[in-house]
């Protein structure tokens, strides 16, 4: 059963008298109880889409519904049933942790006690600081409090707009653990993120760039559908080998991925030996070449170059 249905949604902005496409002709569905990830860089249109679904923006064309309610006609019903955590920290900095939570509970006509079970896991982590002003919390803490506030009325769908941006690797990991626990409670979650590695933690993802969806599928399927042969390469002088590999005949693309380069080749006949020989010829030492399978970032970059959306002007 589809909880969120998006059909041909478009929205453009005017900026300096130029019309810029925010998002164009997006369609997808999110099933009940799944974690759906919108993955893409800043300016891809993630926030615009989430704001349309949370009834805060009107689309130029297309229709969308949440829990069977139309985002335009039934916006009141939607507002009563969803939880929303905007991109920037949007709690009252001059109110304490407790006061913020109580305020949002009453705003949604409920009490903290009524739905305590749902937020308990998260709230116990910030409880020691409950009398502290929200503005004085650390990044990770603020994010946990914001999540509690978005959950306090037990929403059926949770919209999270870049909840992990600017948050350190540890807090990010903890945050995703929390989302997984929420999923077991039957809450449908739509989350956006610019971090490609978080894609693997979603049930299904949409890779978006320049207002368009590059692909929608489960992370496994997307990786599985990567067409080209891919090699992980290590050499003594990493920067030089990167430049050199780009001049290699069979090279489709070559990018650094942490401590290795990912080399994708045009054909399936290029062998490990070919690459080794090429690098040796160029005078490289300590060469290591291993075949690998693609990760989400490889897929994103490939799809990005294919649709050539990387340098189009998009509304940031």
């Amino acid at each position: 059963m589809a909880t969120i249905v998006v059909e041909h949604i478009s929205k453009s902005y005017t900026n300096d008298k130029k019309t810029q496409i925010g998002i164009s002709d997006l369609s997808f569905t999110v099933n009940k109880g799944e974690i759906f990830g919108l993955i893409g860089p800043d300016g891809a249109g993630k926030t615009t889409l989430i704001r349309i679904l949370t009834t805060l923006l009107l689309a130029d064309s297309g229709t969308a519904s949440v829990d069977g309610n139309d985002v335009v006609k039934d916006y009141k019903a939607i507002r009563n049933n969803i939880g929303y955590m905007p991109g920037r920290f949007s709690l009252y900095q001059d109110l304490s942790v407790e006061e913020n939570l109580n305020f949002f509970a009453t705003a949604f006509k409920t009490t903290v006690e009524e739905n305590y079970e749902l937020i308990k896991d998260i709230y116990v982590q910030i409880e020691p600081f409950k009398t502290r002003r929200a503005g004085k919390l650390s990044g990770g803490m603020k994010q946990k409090l914001a999540l509690c506030c978005a959950l306090v009325h037990k929403p059926s769908v949770l919209f999270l707009d870049e909840p992990t941006t600017g948050v350190d690797a540890i807090s990010r990991r903890e945050f995703w653990d929390m989302l997984k626990r929420l999923k077991t409670q039957g809450i449908t979650i739509l989350v956006s993120t610019p971090y490609m590695d978080e894609a693997n933690l979603c049930d299904r993802i949409a890779l978006i760039q320049g207002g368009k969806i590059l692909v929608i599928d489960s992370p496994e399927e997307i990786k599985h559908n990567y067409k080209h042969a891919l090699w992980a390469i290590k050499t003594e002088d990493m920067f030089k080998s990167l430049i050199d590999l780009r001049t290699f005949n069979s090279t489709l693309s070559c990018f650094s991925f942490g401590d290795v380069h990912h080399l994708s080749v045009k054909d399936n006949i290029t062998t490990k030996e070919d690459i080794l020989n090429f690098l040796k010829e160029k005078g490289h030492t300590e060469i290591d070449v291993q075949p690998i399978s693609a990760n989400i970032e490889d897929c994103f970059m490939e799809l990005m170059t294919k649709t050539n959306t990387s340098n189009t002007l998009v509304n940031a």
């Binding site: 949370t54 009834t55 805060l56 009141k76 507002r79 009563n80 969803i82 929303y84 905007p86 991109g87 920037r88 920290f89 949007s90 709690l91 009252y92 949002f104 705003a107 949604f108 006509k109 506030c149 978005a150």
Partner: peptide
């Protein structure tokens, strides 16, 4: 940005 959250509430 709190207005955003308030608008989405009842």
């Amino acid at each position: 940005g709190t207005m955003e959250v308030l608008l989405v509430s009842p």
